[in-house]
């Protein structure tokens, strides 16, 4: 069975006065139906720009998608016109944003905003749309959905607003849901509630979910597969258990090492240096300047994505050598 969504070699650049920012460079991944894929990385790694690229919402200027394909079924979304994309957005691919405070329009009631997103894509009467909206509010576990329907966003807490955002995203039963840092602005107990909800809805709807986050803890709880990004590129991809049990890329290892864990007294293992600028990229691996395992080759040559076993991908010369040393098949 072919995957639900196939991203091949996606490249998005921002053309700024200071120079060309290579926000996303040759990114490829597949998303199956009924799967949660986490895109993980720190600020400036290109994860949010990836989401905007998939949605066809890259701000232009300064941004432009300069190459690659995004295949949803047999259509390449990058070849569609803006009008055709509008039919896809919210209908087949929906998105939930980070800021529940600013992503809802303050002058309309939450119910009306959900009704609006139903009516955009469905030929139904206003009354049917209203019924659907109440259903959706109930679905995202908002207590007393009929009562909340007429509330304005400012009357709701951050967690409730994020539920409304999720209800709007689910209005048209999308195949793919992109959640960009959906719980970053929320308190930890509310985060637990929202993540729990996302997990359940994913099962109920059988959607493919792309979860974009900087928080590895969130990933462990909800993702099936993980793509780790650094400086616009995918550096590692693996099933979630493998990423945490045996990370291959030195960056993934560093990220895990720098997380404080209960019961461990010692100093945190820090990754030295700073996150690189995406304008003056060095010729080799962009992680090389911060990498303890960097070799001369790493500073000259960009490592390709090597497939390891049947489900893992890593872009690192040192990791390839290590894996080959362990007698595993490496396919570059």
């Amino acid at each position: 069975m072919s995957p639900l969504l196939q991203v091949c070699d996606l490249t998005t650049h921002l053309f700024t006065v200071e120079g060309v920012v290579k926000a996303v460079e040759g990114l490829s991944f597949d998303l199956d139906a009924d799967e949660t894929l986490a895109l993980v990385g720190e600020s400036g790694c290109g994860k949010s720009m990836t989401a905007l690229s998939l949605m066809g919402l890259v701000p232009d200027p300064p941004g432009r998608i300069v190459g690659g394909q995004v295949l949803l079924g047999d259509r390449d979304l990058l070849q569609l016109s803006e009008h055709e994309m509008q039919k896809i957005r919210g209908n087949e691919i929906a998105m939930v944003f980070q800021e529940p405070m600013t992503s809802l329009n303050p002058v309309f009631t939450v119910g009306d905003q959900i009704v609006e997103s139903v009516l955009t894509h469905r030929q139904v009467s206003r009354r049917q749309a209203r019924e659907r909206a109440v259903e959706l509010l109930d679905l995202v576990r908002i207590p007393d959905p009929r009562g909340r329907f007429d509330d304005y966003p400012h009357r709701l807490s951050g967690g409730m607003r994020q539920r409304v955002m999720i209800a709007m995203a689910l209005a048209c039963d999308p195949d793919v849901l992109i959640a960009d840092e959906p719980t970053t602005a929320l308190d930890v107990t509310i985060q637990a509630q929202v993540l729990d909800l996302l997990g359940e809805l994913q099962g109920e709807f059988g959607m493919g979910v792309i979860l974009i986050t900087h928080d590895l803890g969130v990933v462990a709880g909800i993702a099936d597969r993980v793509v780790v990004m650094y400086a616009g590129r995918k550096v590692e991809e693996a099933p979630v258990d493998d990423i945490f049990a045996s990370p291959l890329h030195p960056y993934t290892q560093g990220l895990l090492g720098s997380m404080p864990r209960p019961g461990l007294e010692e100093r945190l293992r820090e990754i030295p240096g700073v996150i690189p600028s995406l304008i003056d990229m060095t010729p080799g691996c962009s992680f090389a300047p911060r990498c303890a395992k960097a070799m001369a080759r790493c500073r000259e040559e960009q490592p390709d994505h090597a497939t390891i076993g049947d489900a893992r991908v890593v872009a690192c010369f040192a990791a390839e050598e290590e894996v080959a040393g362990r007698g595993l098949a490496v396919d570059t």
């Binding site: 720190e42 600020s43 900087h214 928080d215 590895l216 560093g254 990220l255 090492g257 720098s258 997380m259 404080p260 100093r267 945190l268 293992r269 820090e270 990754i271 030295p272 700073v274 996150i275």
Partner: peptide
Amino acid sequence: DVSIRAQIINLLT
């Protein structure tokens, strides 16, 4: 960011 956070926590300790 996570990798930077570890540096600052270590500096503080």
